[in-house]
């Protein structure tokens, strides 16, 4: 185990796979512009390259390289930059295998930060995970800890499908214990971050530490919350969530996204269909307000879910 920040753990995951497999490429904007860049120095310019600001070409090239047998990791920096190349992400990468009747595979990773709600205003702060989770053929990883960041990145690179790897920008410097050596976290397996009997809280990314904080606060009042982090939203580990709701009968779904574009609304629908008999109260969703993110600090805080709103959500569901 080594203590390292979330961002270093992602790099550790990429290094682990690049060392192991010469077919892994790493490229994108503003990386490897000098010889001392860690990845360029380790793997050379055949595999590590800077690209222009050309997302459609970057991601399209990754699709082609993947079909030709390589494993590209594209550095996109911000999730919104993927929107420039939405066709490649949604309508090219995940379609090729299907349309070819399984002849080709498209193993690539689109690495992008998201949710940078600290004054980045309307175009750089979105929580876009749900936008991608409903696209058949795409997988979506949303690590909340340093260990998961490493393990999910490594699994993303080994996966034979296109993976949108969304790392949360506000977690960038959060330290965590990360296993040494080869480490993989499987896709589709939620992590029960805190066991509890009274209420189930499901959260991803930056909302996970908020949910754990709320659970701690509630514990002082004798409320025992279970906190589940799905870790990947496609595939989504519904079984773990359903099992928890069977036990608690009450659920609060937390998501930094706007409500109708949130992972929580998808989980809510699945719970209504498959967990209805276990529910002892209506599902509560704690999400961002349905708005573009404002620049001004108090307004930004006003529209985002936080610990207090999660606590309030739990109190409501327990009434």
């Amino acid at each position: 185990m080594a203590l390292m920040p979330y961002i270093a753990a992602i790099d550790a995951g990429i290094h682990q796979e690049m060392r192991r497999d010469p077919k892994v490429l790493y490229f994108g904007q503003n990386l490897a512009t000098t010889e001392n860049h860690a990845f360029l120095a380790a793997y050379g310019p055949e595999r590590v390259r800077v690209t222009p600001i050309s997302e459609t070409a970057e991601i399209g090239i990754a699709v082609g390289a993947a079909m030709a047998g390589l494993r590209p990791v594209v550095e996109l920096y911000m999730a919104e930059f993927m929107l420039v190349a939405m066709d490649q992400v949604v309508n090219e990468a995940p379609r090729m295998r299907y349309m070819s009747g399984g002849q080709v595979k498209v193993p690539l990773v689109l690495k992008a930060g998201y949710g940078f709600t600290c004054g980045w205003a309307g175009q750089h702060t979105g929580t876009l995970s749900a936008l991608f989770m409903g696209v058949p053929g795409l997988k979506v990883a949303v690590p909340a800890t340093a260990a998961d960041a490493k393990g999910l990145m490594a699994s993303a690179i080994r996966d034979d499908n296109p993976v949108v790897f969304l790392h949360h920008y506000l977690l960038t410097l959060e330290q965590g214990e990360v296993p040494d050596g080869e480490y993989l976290v499987p896709f589709g397996k939620a992590d029960v971050r805190r066991a509890g009997a009274d209420v189930t809280i499901v959260a991803t990314g930056w909302m996970v530490p908020r949910a754990l904080g709320a659970a701690q606060q509630l514990a002082k009042e004798g409320i025992d919350a279970e906190v589940i982090d799905p870790r990947t939203v496609a595939p989504l580990d519904l079984d773990t969530i359903l099992k928890s709701v069977d036990k608690t009968g009450r659920v609060v779904l937390v998501d930094q996204a706007t409500r109708h574009a949130s992972v929580s609304s998808v989980i809510a629908a699945e719970l209504a269909e498959h967990g209805f008999r276990a529910l002892r109260a209506p599902i509560i969703q704690v999400t961002a307000a349905d708005t573009t993110i404002p620049y001004s600090e108090p307004l930004e805080a006003y529209v985002l879910p936080d610990e207090a709103r999660i606590v309030a959500g739990v109190r409501t569901v327990l009434k």
Partner: peptide
């Protein structure tokens, strides 16, 4: 603020003076 505090430094807009605005996305 020129945009009521909603846009910040990256998104100054002043339509009255013919400045229709900006995008934070390169080339957009």
């Amino acid at each position: 603020g020129l945009c009521k505090g909603l846009g910040g430094s990256m998104h100054l807009t002043d339509v009255k003076r013919g400045f229709l605005g900006t995008s934070g996305i390169v080339g957009a």
